[in-house]
Computed example of a mutant assay.
Amino acid sequence: MKALKINAKDGHLVLQVENPDDLWALSIIIKPGDVAGMKTLRKVKISTGEAVEADKKPMYLKIRVKKVEFHGFTADLRLSGDIIEGPEDIKGGHTFNLRRSSRLDLWKLIGPEDLELIKEHQTRKPQVAVILVDREGALVAFRQQKIPFSAKLPGKRDEGANEEQAFRQFFGQLRQAVMAFEPEFVVVAGPGFVKDRLATFLKQDGLKVVVESVSSVSESGLREVFGKKTVEQVAGHMREVEEEKLVNDLYARVSRGRGAFYGPVETEACLQEGNVESLLVAASFIATRASEGRYAQLREWMQKVKYVAGEVHIIGVNQDAEKRLEGMGGIAGFKRW
Protein backbone atom coordinates (compact mmCIF):
# COMPACT_ATOMS: atom_id res chain seq x y z
CA MET A 1 0.00 0.00 0.00
CA LYS A 2 1.23 3.46 -0.83
CA ALA A 3 0.35 6.17 1.68
CA LEU A 4 0.37 9.24 -0.55
CA LYS A 5 -0.88 11.48 2.25
CA ILE A 6 -1.45 11.13 6.00
CA ASN A 7 -2.78 14.23 7.75
CA ALA A 8 -3.74 13.23 11.28
CA LYS A 9 -4.89 16.78 12.06
CA ASP A 10 -7.76 16.88 9.57
CA GLY A 11 -8.03 13.09 9.26
CA HIS A 12 -7.30 13.02 5.53
CA LEU A 13 -5.64 9.94 4.04
CA VAL A 14 -4.76 9.30 0.40
CA LEU A 15 -4.03 5.60 -0.15
CA GLN A 16 -3.05 3.57 -3.21
CA VAL A 17 -3.94 -0.14 -3.29
CA GLU A 18 -1.13 -2.40 -4.50
CA ASN A 19 -2.25 -5.95 -3.62
CA PRO A 20 -5.14 -7.94 -2.05
CA ASP A 21 -3.58 -7.62 1.42
CA ASP A 22 -4.10 -3.86 1.19
CA LEU A 23 -7.82 -4.35 0.56
CA TRP A 24 -8.11 -6.44 3.72
CA ALA A 25 -6.32 -3.71 5.69
CA LEU A 26 -8.66 -1.05 4.27
CA SER A 27 -11.67 -3.13 5.31
CA ILE A 28 -10.46 -2.67 8.91
CA ILE A 29 -9.42 0.98 8.54
CA ILE A 30 -12.67 2.19 6.90
CA LYS A 31 -15.68 2.32 9.20
CA PRO A 32 -19.32 3.40 8.89
CA GLY A 33 -19.50 7.20 9.08
CA ASP A 34 -16.15 7.79 7.37
CA VAL A 35 -16.08 9.80 4.13
CA ALA A 36 -14.52 8.13 1.09
CA GLY A 37 -13.82 9.69 -2.30
CA MET A 38 -12.52 8.27 -5.57
CA LYS A 39 -12.94 8.24 -9.33
CA THR A 40 -15.76 5.90 -10.25
CA LEU A 41 -18.31 5.02 -12.92
CA ARG A 42 -21.89 6.17 -12.42
CA LYS A 43 -24.86 5.44 -14.66
CA VAL A 44 -26.46 8.68 -15.86
CA LYS A 45 -29.45 9.33 -18.10
CA ILE A 46 -28.81 11.15 -21.36
CA SER A 47 -31.63 12.67 -23.43
CA THR A 48 -31.24 12.32 -27.20
CA GLY A 49 -34.32 13.91 -28.70
CA GLU A 50 -37.35 11.94 -27.54
CA ALA A 51 -35.28 8.98 -26.33
CA VAL A 52 -33.59 8.73 -22.92
CA GLU A 53 -30.52 6.53 -22.73
CA ALA A 54 -28.49 5.42 -19.72
CA ASP A 55 -24.73 5.31 -19.91
CA LYS A 56 -21.91 4.95 -17.39
CA LYS A 57 -19.75 8.06 -17.04
CA PRO A 58 -16.46 8.51 -15.14
CA MET A 59 -16.62 11.03 -12.29
CA TYR A 60 -15.25 11.79 -8.83
CA LEU A 61 -17.68 11.19 -5.96
CA LYS A 62 -17.57 11.37 -2.19
CA ILE A 63 -19.79 9.12 -0.09
CA ARG A 64 -20.47 8.81 3.61
CA VAL A 65 -19.80 5.14 4.20
CA LYS A 66 -22.65 3.02 5.52
CA LYS A 67 -21.38 -0.47 4.74
CA VAL A 68 -17.94 -2.06 4.27
CA GLU A 69 -17.77 -5.47 2.57
CA PHE A 70 -14.56 -7.39 1.95
CA HIS A 71 -14.83 -10.50 -0.21
CA GLY A 72 -11.76 -12.57 0.57
CA PHE A 73 -12.35 -15.13 -2.17
CA THR A 74 -12.39 -12.56 -4.98
CA ALA A 75 -10.23 -9.99 -3.15
CA ASP A 76 -12.77 -7.19 -3.70
CA LEU A 77 -13.64 -4.39 -1.29
CA ARG A 78 -17.02 -2.66 -1.59
CA LEU A 79 -17.87 0.63 0.12
CA SER A 80 -21.54 1.63 0.05
CA GLY A 81 -23.07 4.88 1.21
CA ASP A 82 -24.85 8.13 0.36
CA ILE A 83 -23.32 10.60 -2.10
CA ILE A 84 -22.34 13.83 -0.33
CA GLU A 85 -20.29 15.45 -3.10
CA GLY A 86 -20.24 15.15 -6.88
CA PRO A 87 -21.80 16.67 -10.01
CA GLU A 88 -24.94 18.67 -9.20
CA ASP A 89 -27.36 16.22 -10.81
CA ILE A 90 -25.93 13.13 -9.08
CA LYS A 91 -27.81 12.14 -5.92
CA GLY A 92 -28.65 9.04 -3.91
CA GLY A 93 -26.52 6.07 -2.96
CA HIS A 94 -23.41 4.67 -4.58
CA THR A 95 -20.96 1.79 -4.16
CA PHE A 96 -17.21 1.98 -4.71
CA ASN A 97 -15.52 -1.23 -5.87
CA LEU A 98 -11.87 -1.17 -4.84
CA ARG A 99 -9.34 -3.44 -6.50
CA ARG A 100 -5.61 -3.50 -7.11
CA SER A 101 -4.36 -0.04 -8.26
CA SER A 102 -7.40 1.81 -6.83
CA ARG A 103 -6.65 5.23 -5.31
CA LEU A 104 -8.81 6.38 -2.42
CA ASP A 105 -9.30 9.61 -0.47
CA LEU A 106 -10.45 9.00 3.08
CA TRP A 107 -11.58 11.40 5.80
CA LYS A 108 -11.93 9.84 9.25
CA LEU A 109 -10.98 9.95 12.90
CA ILE A 110 -7.65 8.14 12.61
CA GLY A 111 -7.11 5.47 15.25
CA PRO A 112 -3.85 3.83 16.37
CA GLU A 113 -4.70 0.57 14.60
CA ASP A 114 -5.21 2.52 11.37
CA LEU A 115 -1.67 3.92 11.43
CA GLU A 116 -0.29 0.52 12.45
CA LEU A 117 -1.96 -1.23 9.52
CA ILE A 118 -0.87 1.44 7.04
CA LYS A 119 2.72 1.26 8.28
CA GLU A 120 2.75 -2.54 8.09
CA HIS A 121 1.33 -2.65 4.57
CA GLN A 122 3.79 -0.09 3.22
CA THR A 123 6.41 -2.85 3.37
CA ARG A 124 5.73 -5.51 0.78
CA LYS A 125 5.78 -9.09 2.05
CA PRO A 126 6.18 -12.31 0.04
CA GLN A 127 2.97 -13.75 -1.36
CA VAL A 128 2.70 -17.33 -0.11
CA ALA A 129 0.12 -19.97 -1.04
CA VAL A 130 -0.39 -23.24 0.83
CA ILE A 131 -1.53 -26.57 -0.61
CA LEU A 132 -2.49 -29.37 1.76
CA VAL A 133 -2.81 -32.64 -0.15
CA ASP A 134 -3.33 -36.38 0.22
CA ARG A 135 -4.93 -39.17 -1.83
CA GLU A 136 -8.47 -38.06 -1.00
CA GLY A 137 -8.24 -34.36 -1.78
CA ALA A 138 -6.55 -31.04 -1.24
CA LEU A 139 -7.02 -27.61 0.29
CA VAL A 140 -5.53 -24.57 -1.46
CA ALA A 141 -5.18 -21.59 0.87
CA PHE A 142 -4.13 -18.02 0.16
CA ARG A 143 -4.78 -15.38 2.79
CA GLN A 144 -8.52 -15.62 3.60
CA GLN A 145 -9.30 -17.71 0.55
CA LYS A 146 -9.60 -21.49 0.87
CA ILE A 147 -10.48 -23.79 -2.03
CA PRO A 148 -11.21 -27.48 -1.27
CA PHE A 149 -10.68 -30.24 -3.84
CA SER A 150 -11.99 -33.81 -3.69
CA ALA A 151 -10.08 -36.71 -5.21
CA LYS A 152 -9.66 -40.46 -5.05
CA LEU A 153 -6.22 -41.10 -6.42
CA PRO A 154 -5.40 -44.71 -7.34
CA GLY A 155 -2.93 -46.78 -5.37
CA LYS A 156 -0.35 -49.18 -6.71
CA ARG A 157 -2.71 -52.11 -6.10
CA ASP A 158 -5.60 -50.60 -8.08
CA GLU A 159 -5.91 -52.79 -11.15
CA GLY A 160 -6.45 -51.06 -14.48
CA ALA A 161 -5.98 -47.61 -13.03
CA ASN A 162 -3.75 -45.20 -14.93
CA GLU A 163 -1.98 -43.89 -11.88
CA GLU A 164 0.29 -41.36 -13.59
CA GLN A 165 -2.53 -39.83 -15.63
CA ALA A 166 -4.79 -39.51 -12.59
CA PHE A 167 -2.08 -37.78 -10.57
CA ARG A 168 -1.16 -35.37 -13.37
CA GLN A 169 -4.80 -34.43 -13.96
CA PHE A 170 -5.36 -33.73 -10.27
CA PHE A 171 -2.08 -31.84 -9.90
CA GLY A 172 -2.98 -29.76 -12.95
CA GLN A 173 -6.17 -28.58 -11.22
CA LEU A 174 -4.20 -27.60 -8.12
CA ARG A 175 -1.58 -25.80 -10.19
CA GLN A 176 -4.26 -23.80 -12.00
CA ALA A 177 -5.87 -22.79 -8.70
CA VAL A 178 -2.66 -21.72 -7.01
CA MET A 179 -1.22 -19.89 -10.05
CA ALA A 180 -4.27 -17.60 -10.06
CA PHE A 181 -2.90 -16.04 -6.85
CA GLU A 182 0.53 -15.34 -8.43
CA PRO A 183 2.45 -16.50 -5.33
CA GLU A 184 6.19 -16.17 -4.89
CA PHE A 185 6.33 -19.31 -2.74
CA VAL A 186 4.13 -22.39 -2.46
CA VAL A 187 4.10 -24.50 0.70
CA VAL A 188 3.07 -28.08 -0.10
CA ALA A 189 2.17 -30.17 2.94
CA GLY A 190 0.36 -33.37 3.79
CA PRO A 191 0.47 -36.62 5.76
CA GLY A 192 1.81 -38.93 3.02
CA PHE A 193 3.93 -39.12 -0.11
CA VAL A 194 1.48 -37.30 -2.42
CA LYS A 195 2.90 -33.97 -1.28
CA ASP A 196 6.35 -34.91 -2.60
CA ARG A 197 4.98 -35.84 -6.02
CA LEU A 198 3.00 -32.59 -6.16
CA ALA A 199 6.09 -30.56 -5.20
CA THR A 200 8.08 -32.15 -8.03
CA PHE A 201 5.23 -31.41 -10.44
CA LEU A 202 5.03 -27.72 -9.42
CA LYS A 203 8.79 -27.20 -9.57
CA GLN A 204 8.64 -28.00 -13.29
CA ASP A 205 6.92 -24.61 -13.72
CA GLY A 206 9.73 -22.83 -11.89
CA LEU A 207 7.76 -22.29 -8.69
CA LYS A 208 9.62 -21.96 -5.40
CA VAL A 209 8.26 -24.83 -3.31
CA VAL A 210 8.66 -25.72 0.36
CA VAL A 211 7.60 -29.23 1.46
CA GLU A 212 6.36 -29.96 4.98
CA SER A 213 4.62 -32.83 6.78
CA VAL A 214 1.32 -32.28 8.58
CA SER A 215 -1.19 -34.71 10.05
CA SER A 216 -4.25 -33.87 7.94
CA VAL A 217 -5.76 -31.88 5.07
CA SER A 218 -7.84 -29.58 7.27
CA GLU A 219 -7.86 -26.34 9.26
CA SER A 220 -5.74 -28.04 11.92
CA GLY A 221 -3.29 -28.95 9.17
CA LEU A 222 -3.04 -25.28 8.24
CA ARG A 223 -2.28 -24.44 11.87
CA GLU A 224 0.55 -26.96 11.76
CA VAL A 225 1.94 -25.34 8.60
CA PHE A 226 1.91 -21.89 10.17
CA GLY A 227 3.84 -23.28 13.13
CA LYS A 228 6.71 -24.62 11.01
CA LYS A 229 9.98 -22.70 11.36
CA THR A 230 11.09 -23.56 7.83
CA VAL A 231 8.04 -21.79 6.40
CA GLU A 232 8.90 -18.59 8.25
CA GLN A 233 12.57 -18.83 7.27
CA VAL A 234 11.75 -19.14 3.57
CA ALA A 235 8.78 -16.80 3.30
CA GLY A 236 9.71 -14.19 5.89
CA HIS A 237 7.26 -12.93 8.49
CA MET A 238 3.91 -14.11 7.13
CA ARG A 239 1.02 -12.40 8.85
CA GLU A 240 -0.78 -15.74 9.15
CA VAL A 241 2.19 -17.17 11.06
CA GLU A 242 2.47 -14.15 13.34
CA GLU A 243 -1.25 -14.23 14.18
CA GLU A 244 -1.08 -17.98 14.86
CA LYS A 245 1.83 -17.50 17.28
CA LEU A 246 0.10 -14.67 19.14
CA VAL A 247 -3.15 -16.59 19.67
CA ASN A 248 -1.27 -19.78 20.61
CA ASP A 249 0.69 -17.78 23.19
CA LEU A 250 -2.56 -16.32 24.50
CA TYR A 251 -4.14 -19.76 24.96
CA ALA A 252 -0.98 -21.06 26.65
CA ARG A 253 -0.93 -18.19 29.15
CA VAL A 254 -4.64 -18.55 29.88
CA SER A 255 -4.24 -22.29 30.50
CA ARG A 256 -1.41 -21.55 32.95
CA GLY A 257 -3.65 -19.03 34.70
CA ARG A 258 -1.25 -16.10 34.52
CA GLY A 259 0.11 -13.44 32.20
CA ALA A 260 -3.03 -12.91 30.11
CA PHE A 261 -6.49 -11.36 30.12
CA TYR A 262 -9.45 -11.73 27.78
CA GLY A 263 -12.87 -10.23 27.14
CA PRO A 264 -13.94 -6.55 27.32
CA VAL A 265 -14.36 -6.54 31.13
CA GLU A 266 -10.88 -7.88 31.91
CA THR A 267 -9.38 -5.71 29.17
CA GLU A 268 -10.79 -2.52 30.66
CA ALA A 269 -9.65 -3.52 34.16
CA CYS A 270 -6.07 -4.19 33.01
CA LEU A 271 -5.99 -0.93 31.07
CA GLN A 272 -7.02 1.01 34.17
CA GLU A 273 -4.12 -0.63 36.03
CA GLY A 274 -1.69 0.09 33.19
CA ASN A 275 -1.04 -3.65 33.06
CA VAL A 276 -1.18 -4.23 29.28
CA GLU A 277 1.92 -5.19 27.32
CA SER A 278 0.16 -6.29 24.12
CA LEU A 279 -3.45 -6.08 22.98
CA LEU A 280 -4.96 -8.59 20.54
CA VAL A 281 -8.12 -7.47 18.74
CA ALA A 282 -10.14 -9.58 16.30
CA ALA A 283 -10.96 -7.77 13.06
CA SER A 284 -14.57 -8.91 13.47
CA PHE A 285 -14.66 -7.29 16.94
CA ILE A 286 -13.65 -3.94 15.42
CA ALA A 287 -16.29 -4.28 12.69
CA THR A 288 -19.01 -5.16 15.21
CA ARG A 289 -18.16 -2.26 17.51
CA ALA A 290 -18.11 0.15 14.57
CA SER A 291 -21.48 -1.04 13.23
CA GLU A 292 -23.01 -0.74 16.71
CA GLY A 293 -21.66 2.78 17.22
CA ARG A 294 -19.36 1.65 20.05
CA TYR A 295 -16.02 2.04 18.32
CA ALA A 296 -15.02 5.16 20.30
CA GLN A 297 -14.40 3.15 23.47
CA LEU A 298 -12.36 0.54 21.60
CA ARG A 299 -10.28 3.26 19.94
CA GLU A 300 -9.62 4.78 23.37
CA TRP A 301 -8.44 1.38 24.67
CA MET A 302 -6.01 0.98 21.77
CA GLN A 303 -4.72 4.53 22.22
CA LYS A 304 -4.02 3.83 25.90
CA VAL A 305 -1.94 0.79 24.96
CA LYS A 306 0.09 2.77 22.42
CA TYR A 307 0.52 5.64 24.91
CA VAL A 308 2.39 3.35 27.33
CA ALA A 309 4.52 1.88 24.49
CA GLY A 310 2.45 -1.29 24.25
CA GLU A 311 1.62 -3.17 21.07
CA VAL A 312 -1.73 -3.53 19.31
CA HIS A 313 -2.21 -6.56 17.04
CA ILE A 314 -5.20 -6.93 14.71
CA ILE A 315 -6.04 -10.62 14.15
CA GLY A 316 -7.95 -11.27 10.93
CA VAL A 317 -5.91 -12.67 8.03
CA ASN A 318 -5.59 -16.04 9.78
CA GLN A 319 -9.29 -16.85 10.05
CA ASP A 320 -8.76 -19.78 12.40
CA ALA A 321 -6.79 -17.58 14.81
CA GLU A 322 -9.48 -14.91 14.54
CA LYS A 323 -12.22 -17.43 15.41
CA ARG A 324 -10.26 -18.64 18.43
CA LEU A 325 -9.86 -15.04 19.61
CA GLU A 326 -13.58 -14.45 19.04
CA GLY A 327 -14.15 -17.36 21.44
CA MET A 328 -12.41 -15.28 24.11
CA GLY A 329 -14.60 -12.25 23.58
CA GLY A 330 -12.87 -10.81 20.52
CA ILE A 331 -10.29 -8.91 22.55
CA ALA A 332 -7.49 -10.11 24.83
CA GLY A 333 -3.84 -9.53 25.59
CA PHE A 334 -0.69 -10.05 27.60
CA LYS A 335 -0.05 -8.46 30.99
CA ARG A 336 3.07 -6.53 31.95
CA TRP A 337 3.27 -8.25 35.33
Rank of each mutant, 00 (worst) to 15 (best):
K62V: 00
F70S: 05
G92I: 04
L279D: 03
L198M: 13
K203A: 01
A282S: 15
V225K: 07
A129K: 01
K203G: 01
D105V: 03
Q204M: 10
E224T: 12
A54Y: 08
K245V: 12
K5H: 07
A287I: 08
R143S: 11
P154E: 12
G11C: 05
E212L: 13
G137W: 06
G172K: 05
G111W: 01
N248H: 11
P183T: 02
E292F: 08
E326D: 08
E224A: 13
R103S: 05
V178C: 06
V187E: 05
A321E: 02
K91Q: 14
R294Q: 14
E232T: 14
Y262T: 11
E326V: 04
D196K: 13
G33N: 01
D134V: 05
I131F: 04
I29V: 11
K43W: 10
W107C: 00
G327L: 08
K208Q: 13
G263V: 14
F73K: 10
M238I: 14
E326C: 10
G263A: 13
L4H: 02
H313A: 07
A321G: 08
K5V: 03
A129L: 06
G81R: 05
V281R: 07
E240S: 11
K2M: 04
A332M: 09
E164M: 15
F334H: 05
G333L: 03
E292Q: 13
I28L: 09
S278I: 02
G111K: 00
R42Q: 05
P148D: 09
F149L: 11
V178S: 05
K306D: 08
L79Y: 06
K195R: 15
A235F: 00
R168Q: 14
S218R: 09
L109M: 03
A54K: 13
K45N: 04
T288M: 15
A189L: 06
H94K: 06
Q233N: 13
T230Y: 07
D105A: 06
A8S: 12
P112E: 06
K56V: 14
E232G: 14
F73E: 15
Q173H: 14
E277R: 10
G72D: 08
V130H: 00
